[in-house]
């Protein structure tokens, strides 16, 4: 047993500067040691352990339990949709694309029958 090491850990325990790994090691040691030098640390650690056991599991109101579940589900669904959408459609920036769009729309809106007359007919209905 490296007593100095665990003494150092117990001091850090009271200063709340232990890493989770160090805390696990210290608690494992305190659970087995009978050295009176560690009685104070054992008492405090035992107090918190007993407190946790007495308090039992923290129960949130039923309505709260839906919040994280709903948030995770909605976020996942949005991520999937955005991912699929971006994967399928590549946006084309630039003047070339706009020029192509103008040509296509000009072809559509200028072709066929007299669009102006027919559209005004539709609007007047």
């Amino acid at each position: 047993m490296n007593k100095n090491y665990y003494k150092k850990l117990s001091l850090k325990y009271f200063e709340a500067t232990l890493s989770p790994r160090e805390e696990r090691r210290l608690k494992a040691f305190l659970a087995t040691t009978r050295d009176p030098d560690f009685d104070d640390a054992k008492a405090v650690a035992g107090y918190f352990a007993a407190g946790r056991a007495a308090a039992g599991r923290i129960v949130r109101p039923a309505s709260w339990r839906w919040i994280p579940v709903t948030a995770i589900s909605a976020a996942a669904a949005i991520a999937v949709i955005v991912g699929v959408h971006i994967g399928k459609e590549k946006q084309i920036p630039g003047n070339e694309a706009l020029a192509s769009m103008e040509n296509t729309l000009a072809s559509i809106f200028s072709s066929g029958t007299d669009v102006e007359t027919e559209l005004s007919g539709i609007m007047n209905q």
Binding site: E102, T104, L105, A106, S107, I108, F109, S110, D114, V115, E116, L119, I122, M123
Partner: peptide, 23 residues
């Protein structure tokens, strides 16, 4: 075949005014 889907604040009259060369 050409198929176009458009969405925006423009009306069909606005689009016709912008793109109909006959006008």
């Amino acid at each position: 075949v050409t198929v176009v889907y458009l969405r925006g604040t423009a009306t069909v009259e606005d689009l016709d005014a912008m793109f109909n060369k006959k006008r």
